[in-house]
Nucleic acid binder design. Structure first.
Lengths: 367, 367
DNA sequence: CTGAAAGCGCTTACAG
DNA sequence: CTGAAAGCGCTTACAG
């Protein structure tokens, strides 16, 4: 119903993807360009052995026919599927969300697609995901293991199918594989050193799942540092909980119910710390002035909190990026020894640990 | 080096996946079970036309040979790849993280794998992701469109390849496709009704990206409701910002700098609301008592805030679940008219809007 | 209920 | 530098 004399702006027509009923294949492109299918295949992957002139001709044919590369067929024939798998636990955890983004970005740059699945820390789900990955012949898989995963569980699918994999964030006992994580022991040391320097004398460690290696490492580093500063650590002041805000609240309540009154609290992570501060306030204690509060991960919210939260950054995006790098490199060198990358954490000092109101200032604080 | 007389607990040996150098295929299973490859293929998919006895025999053969189904080959031959694509913007947004989890869980139950990619609201990235999905012949794709995506952009890859898709969270002008989102207009109405009932007279709407349809819808609902309650809405009190905590801080500062002093603030979402409350406090105003603060999404943190935040829940996990359901159904009925699902929000009333200190109580509040 | 055969659309030596 | 041919491991009519 356009009047004839109106100029309609010319949108390029959507190219056809089918010849009659058939899909456009390399064969059609080859015929149209006057070359063989093999040549087309090489042009697709931009092989240096095809002269530029031929490439141009083939690419033109592709364009004209509206050819779309069929990755499915390539995958069956080629050695690689250019697909990786990510078996994560839960992406609602901001740390893992950040990590996932970096991982995916790096993979995409390298031409890999990513199949993602979440185990929710359930081992049956994790196993089903591994099965899917192996059946689909992913070139490699990233695993954030569930709490109960053992080396045997992983081997059942990955070793027998010869699928390279890298463990992220959590170690697995006696499992020979690439591994990337934040250096949580070091992170604990950093926080411990800082609290000691600020003059704290009694430090509690609150929150986080009891058996998690992340928790264990952070606590170990913390205790080690305190010991070096001649500060005793009372194991009764280490209280595990869920790794969320509610966990922080609980842990504080339990701590105070026990009659403990530390002058500093190291929290399992920032989210726990928010709960800890909340619970302190509910109990009439001002976080930062009555009790120093420090934490791990340094998510964005840490800086925005009141008072701003001292936290040891653990750089999830670096962990994700490194994991991708390692697995990509692993493909070319399956027999190289396993890499173990521990990324250095960094302490961000903020008011939650530096505005303590004290009767006596300790020696360390003065020096 | 085990002494002979020690009983070694018998771990089932890892089954071989290869015969000599070759992978174990259906052909091997068929030979071992004394049936044809076609029969094996049907057993894998548990076809009712194969008698139980034969199935057992075939499955036993699989077990004995350590057969692993090769999904790659199936994909090339079968009509479906049993793979879906998710083109999201950013999973660090808690709303989308929640949505993604639900989506993935539902798909996994239905036997689909999920290829995930993030556009970061960048259209070039989005387009590359769509290309990957189409080349891999995913059975369908979920798209959370970038801010600038048009119908043409989507059609370029999805329409020409006949790939079913459902839009999530954001609409696209003149685009005929399944669509799932929270009913944001309704959400705005719910919050507006509540604030009016609480006796608020001057309401600001703060935060969120200016052009986003989510923001527009929420504001439209809010204004509509206020109008119904004979409360005028001053467009100068609608201030856009980034959709994070910092955005909330900014918006409040701008509002107060303009000399405005509303008795209620509706925030774009909960995270913005946290920033808003923080900024109010910095300006000597107590959120909840001096200014009512309400919001949208009702993330977990809303309830844990001080004061607990009134928020309209928009159920991301339901949106994800519905999107999965719709796309799965769509595969069986490609020509049915597009579905548009708007999920009903629900208001959670908390202290941030119910503890106002007022000189005069309005009529509505009394009734 | 089961088998023989064709074929999905690529890639990969290999030959020229 | 290019082509002819084999083959990846399944599924799918079709025939019996």
């Amino acid at each position: 119903m356009q009047p004839d004399d109106v100029t309609v702006s010319e949108v390029p027509p959507v190219p056809p993807r089918r010849l009659g009923k058939r899909r456009v294949t390399m064969k059609d492109v080859a015929a149209h360009a006057g070359v063989s299918r093999a040549t087309v295949s090489l042009v697709v992957r931009d092989s240096p052995q095809i002269p530029a002139e031929t490439k141009d001709r083939v690419r033109q044919a592709m364009e004209q026919l509206g050819y779309v590369y069929d990755h499915r067929a390539a995958v069956m024939r080629a050695e690689r599927t250019m697909t990786m798998g990510l078996v994560a636990t839960d992406v609602r955890n901001p740390y893992f969300a950040e990590l996932t983004m970096a991982l995916q970005t790096r993979l995409q740059e390298a031409g890999f697609a990513l199949i993602t699945g979440y185990s929710l820390d359930d081992q049956a789900r994790e196993e089903r995901l591994l099965e899917v990955m192996v059946q689909r012949h992913v070139d490699g898989v990233f695993v954030i293991p569930s709490k109960t995963t053992t080396s045997d569980d992983l081997n059942r699918w990955l070793l027998t199918s010869d699928t390279p994999h890298v463990l992220i964030a959590r170690r697995i006992k006696d499992h020979e594989a690439d591994y990337v994580a934040a250096d949580n022991v070091r992170a604990g040391v950093l926080l411990g050193d800082h609290l000691a320097t600020e003059g704290c004398q009694t430090v509690a460690f609150l929150g986080g799942p009891a058996q998690s290696p992340v928790r264990t490492d952070r606590e170990r580093g913390l205790v080690k540092s305190l010991k070096a500063h001649r500060i005793a650590f009372d194991q009764a002041l280490s209280i595990a909980s869920s790794a969320d805000r509610a966990g922080g609240v609980e842990a504080v309540n339990q701590l105070l119910a026990n009659g403990a009154r530390p002058d500093a609290i190291a929290c399992y992570n920032d989210v726990v710390a928010f709960g800890v501060m909340e619970a302190l306030r509910s109990n009439g204690l001002a976080p930062g002035t009555d009790v120093a509060v420090g934490s791990f991960d340094d998510i964005q919210e840490a800086e925005l909190n009141h008072p701003p939260l001292t936290s040891v950054a653990t750089f999830p995006e670096q962990v994700g990026y490194e994991a991708a790098r390692i697995l990509i490199e692993r493909l070319d060198d399956p027999d190289a020894p396993a890499e173990r990358v521990l990324l250095s954490p960094r302490l961000s000092v903020r008011e939650s640990t530096t505005t303590m109101r004290r009767a006596t200032i300790s020696q360390e604080a003065i020096s």
